[in-house]
Nucleic acid binder design. Structure first.
Lengths: 117, 117
DNA sequence: CAGAATACCGAGAAATTATTCCATATACGA
DNA sequence: TCGTATATGGAATAATTTCTCGGTATTCTG
């Protein structure tokens, strides 16, 4: 496979373990999009995160399936159809995603002033 | 400079903003080490995080200073001495660090079983 | 005096991540 | 029939991040 993580997650330190599961560019956003527990199709997720290419979403979702954060269902139909759904393990990360989302909202203005636009 | 972030932080989405501040490999660990508010010297931080090279700690601390998460004091002495201290802004990230630390502790065993040691 | 410790930084190599482009196969609508 | 949508993934490239090595300068210890 072209994309294969050498060390899937970091087992040396609890903080690094958690970070290594979500630090890729779009994983936290994907968990946020999937938070309701509803099934979402790849094309739907791409519409929610248009800045990400379908390719990178595909790769990161695959890793998240492997790590147990989301499930994937493939419907044997044509045209092809598949769907992702957050698992209980993935849901247990949502409080962390929430706190990052809130922190970001509270401090966005500060960083816009500092770096920004 | 050799190491310069092209886009310092991600201003497009609150979640990405927060992530972009802490997603580098050692930043969350550095915040954790500095949490008490005490000053810590670079060599001291390296002793706490021996897996990281002094070089990468230096680079990531510099970015954290720029982002306002830590302060740096340089003492005009020889041999050279400097020290880092977490800022109020940095402290406001500690609840997030805590929740990641706790999640990691709770699920470490699961991932050790899964990906082995 | 030789060597370690101190902080820092440049340069290049290596590793990791992300992007871009192309190809597969099929059904549906214009 | 042609174009679009669908999901997926190979391959090459680009971008980013981290690692390794070496060099600066000075003090202190053995």
């Amino acid at each position: 496979m072209t994309y294969e993580k050498k060390i899937p997650v970091d087992l040396d330190c609890p903080l690094r373990l958690t970070m290594s599961l979500i630090e890729s560019k779009w994983k936290s956003c994907l968990l946020d999009e999937l938070r309701s527990g509803a099934e979402m199709r790849p094309s739907e997720l791409h519409k929610c995160l248009p800045e990400a290419t379908p390719r990178v979403l595909d790769i990161q979702l695959k890793e998240m399936v492997e790590d147990g954060l989301v499930n994937k269902t493939i419907f044997p139909e044509l045209p092809p159809r598949s769907a992702y759904r957050i698992t209980d393990l993935g849901k247990s990360l949502l409080p962390i995603i929430d706190s990052m989302l809130n922190w970001g909202k509270e401090h966005m203005e500060l960083f816009e002033k500092k770096y920004g636009r």
